[in-house]
Amino acid sequence: MSRLIKVSGLTLGWDETVLLQDASFEVERGSVFVILGGSGCGKSTLLRYLIGLDQPMSGTIAIEGVSGEQLGFSRPEFGVMFQSGALLGSMTVGANLALQLTEWTQLPAEAVNVIVRAKLRLVGLQDAEDKLPSELSGGMKKRAAIARAMVLEPSLLFLDEPSAGLDPVSSFELDALIRSLNQALGLTVVMVSHELESIFSIADSCIMLDKASKSIIARGAPRTLRDSSADPRVSAFFNRRAVAPPVAPPLPLEVKP
């Protein structure tokens, strides 16, 4: 596999707040790469910088053949699924998918409809084309958002917490969908998550961010990190336990004279 994304010396934050300092990592083409860590460590913020919505304080993000600098002005080279789905609420699901096709291709309306239906069928939402986003459940919104992110056939997908807030069955189905897209289409998937089951089932490699040290504290395959990481923070995260023991032993009773 070749390298698709190279991040060097990245420092993120705003004003005097630094979230992540001097972070460097690479993402292989065709892999499922997960950014993980506890709440508030800057996972979703890092994703915003990767897709070019914000500019870093320092460091570089190089995505081969892709530039986030012209965001909003040129045809996007990657797809993004936001945590909430971020479907345009005033449009039907079908119109949400058709928007980019009419904007960036010369396809006639009939062909646009064919592609929209095919993408919706791919994510199991063939009956939702004429529905408004407000009529969909949380899981359906996320699947619709993945379909929209894939509508221009990007080679790279960014997903922000796809399983968050979903029931175990919906979460499992979504993981299976992401894995099958990755395997069948060779899509590179960069995903933010802290859902362990999801991470173990679909991630090839990951980095773990730490809020306290504002740095990447682990990188590698999730199972390897779980089984062999010497860092107590990493081990605690993967084994679902607190870094400190939950209850201290009782103090000895003082003997009255």
Binding site: L53, A86, L88
Partner: peptide
């Protein structure tokens, strides 16, 4: 404003469609 806080504006930008 509602579109901004629900990430719809960001989604538009990532789709190459400027909110302007």
């Amino acid at each position: 404003g509602s579109m901004k806080v629900s990430e719809e504006i960001d989604a538009l930008r990532t789709m190459g469609i400027g909110p302007m």
